[in-house]
């Protein structure tokens, strides 16, 4: 039974293309700024108020790895794409229930578990397209800028973002099965991801509260560590994957029990 995942994947293609294009433009703009920024890296690092710099973790801005790892990836992947995947997840179930599409869908010999799994399965489309598209763009950009970057390291920064984005999507799905309105579910999903991201950054300011950051998914995806120090925190990625499975299991458990 793959009809649903095929249909949902197809439905995501257009939005994914647009989004890849938009983020592609953003990446190009950011790369265009890099040479100027690299020259002024020290001034910039000092110009930001300490807590804002801490939020992003600016580091080694004068190198391309530092620029990507501590500036571009935290912005685009951790924040923007995290929010986008939560938004996608938020739109998966609530709208179908409200518009009565779920009635027709569930009149087929397909279980509710399968409906949720196939719907979330369809996010392979944006996951692959955005990561591959932006990888190509960034790698090509490094040549244009006459910088060098290890493609394996860059690929790892992309690959390890996947578990993080899955967790963001699962947060959205959870909201989507619990809340009745699609707009509420999307807002709650992306709001939750944003607040968690903020909490992670803020908790690092205060050593007493740093443990709070351990509860946020963004703590377990550190593009700076990957790109600058070539540290691949596979254990952290595993924690994110387990979190994803647990969130999804809770969402499915709730969905199979609720009235539609």
């Amino acid at each position: 039974m793959t009809a649903i995942v095929r249909m949902e994947s197809r439905n995501l293609v257009r939005g994914t293309l647009v989004l890849t294009g938009v983020f592609g433009l953003l990446v190009v703009f950011m790369l265009a700024v890099f040479p100027g920024m690299a020259a002024e890296a020290e001034t910039i690092e000092q110009a930001f108020p300490e807590h804002v710099a801490g939020l992003f973790g600016f580091e080694e801005l004068h190198t391309l790895e530092g620029f990507l790892g501590s500036y571009m990836f935290p912005f685009i992947w951790t924040l923007f794409l995290g929010i986008y995947f939560a938004y996608l997840g938020g739109g998966m179930i609530a709208g179908d229930i409200r518009e009565r599409r779920m009635d027709l869908l569930l009149s087929n010999p397909v279980s509710r578990e399968s409906v949720v799994l196939q719907k979330i399965g369809a996010i392979w489309v944006p996951l692959v397209a955005i990561n591959v598209g932006l990888f190509v763009l960034l790698y090509a950009g490094s040549f244009v800028l006459e910088e060098s970057i290890d493609p394996v390291v860059l690929a790892m920064a992309h690959l390890l973002s996947v578990p993080y984005l899955l967790v963001c999507a699962a947060i959205g799905v959870l909201m989507s099965v619990v809340l009745d309105r699609v707009a509420s579910a999307q807002a709650a999903g992306l709001g939750a991801v944003f607040m968690l991201w903020l909490l992670d950054g803020l908790s690092e300011m205060d050593p007493d509260l740093e443990w709070v950051g351990g509860l946020t998914p963004s703590r377990y995806y550190d593009p700076a560590a990957i790109l600058i120090h070539e540290e691949y925190a596979l254990g952290d990625a595993a924690i994110l994957l387990v979190t994803f499975v647990v969130l999804l299991a809770i969402a499915i458990g709730y969905f199979v029990r609720r009235d539609i």
């Binding site: 249909m7 439905n11 179908d96 518009e99 009565r100 599409r101 779920m102 009635d103 027709l104 009149s107 087929n108 010999p109 397909v110 279980s111 509710r112 199979v256």
Partner: peptide, 24 residues
């Protein structure tokens, strides 16, 4: 019995009052 009912649905047709097709 959700599992049994899901299997039985292969042999059931359903015409709801509000037809929620994917309009696109």
């Amino acid at each position: 019995d959700r599992r049994a009912l899901t299997e039985a649905k292969a042999n059931v047709g359903y015409l709801p009052d509000t037809l929620g097709f994917d309009d696109r």
